[in-house]
């Protein structure tokens, strides 16, 4: 095997729960152009049902590619991807809301695509907007909402897909720090309440530690899984807390080592 899989011994106090896998990635290799090095090589990743996993890595490590494979938007060159949900929900870095629809209209489109009856859509959309604390903003157009509000509408839309698996591709990268803090809290709450399995891609180490039960570090060119950490810090967590900071420094050091390899 090419990839190293180990867990930081000091943190590995809790064994992973024996729940059925929500996502199973088996020896996945992805080549975009023949003759060029693969973007992903021999990636194995299992996400248990209800687990929150953060995928961490420098740019070019193929974490977004991996997420697209799990989302079913692409097929791997080699290996297998299995997802327990029929269609995983996916959130992008951009809110990607449709600007001719209202906030509620965007959520309703996801309900419609799922086959929810016309009469039930409005109530359900309002419930979901209430869930992300946007109950009174449903009639607003996308351009009337702030960046953080747009991303919450996008979260409500993802939840409208009623999938047990939620994939997130750096969804908070473009937001300011305070808004991001609030959305971390929001996401943690929704994850707990809805019992979702989450795969969260980020390049922000603290964010990964703040959110994840497990942080998976990927190397770049080719993208491989290098190491993973179990995060046992109990919720509620704060991104500025010493516990989060300590683990984040440890992971950052490893990330730096990983990135420096490419400069040599």
């Amino acid at each position: 095997m090419t990839q190293v899989r180990e867990q930081a011994p000091t943190r590995n106090t809790v064994a992973p729960p024996p729940a059925p896998a929500a996502v199973r990635v088996d020896g996945v290799t992805q080549v975009f152009e023949r003759g060029r090095p693969p973007v992903l090589e021999g990636v194995d990743l299992t996400v248990a049902a209800g687990e929150f996993v953060c995928l961490l890595g420098a740019s070019g490590c193929g974490k977004s590619t991996l997420l697209n494979l799990v989302a079913g938007l692409a097929t791997p060159t080699a290996g297998r991807v299995e997802v327990s949900a029929e269609r995983p929900a996916l959130m992008f870095q951009e809110p990607a809301l449709l600007p001719w629809l209202t906030a509620r209209g965007n959520v309703e489109l996801a309900l419609k695509a799922r086959g929810v009856a016309r009469g039930a859509r409005r109530t359900e959309a309002e419930r979901l907007l209430e869930l992300v604390n946007l109950g009174s903003h449903g009639a607003k157009r996308v351009h009337e909402l702030s960046g953080g509000m747009r991303q919450r509408v996008a979260l409500a839309r993802a939840l409208a897909q009623d999938s047990s698996v939620l994939l997130m591709d750096e969804p908070f990268a473009a937001l300011d720090a305070i808004t991001r803090d609030v959305l971390h809290e929001e996401l943690t709450r929704v994850w707990t309440e809805q019992q979702l399995s989450v795969v969260f891609v980020t390049h922000n180490v603290r964010e990964a530690v703040r959110l994840g039960q497990r942080v998976v570090l990927m190397s770049s060119r080719p993208g491989r899984i290098v190491r993973e950490w179990q995060v046992d810090i109990p919720h509620p967590r704060a991104i500025e807390s010493p516990a989060v900071g300590a683990l984040a420094s440890e992971i950052t050091a490893e990330l730096h080592r990983e990135i420096s390899r490419h400069g040599r």
Binding site: G148, V182, R189, A243
Partner: peptide, 21 residues
Amino acid sequence: LAPERDTRAVEAGLDALDGGG
């Protein structure tokens, strides 16, 4: 050190300050 933050209140404040888009 995890503070007892009222996320909803912060969020509502942010929305009011910034929500005009």
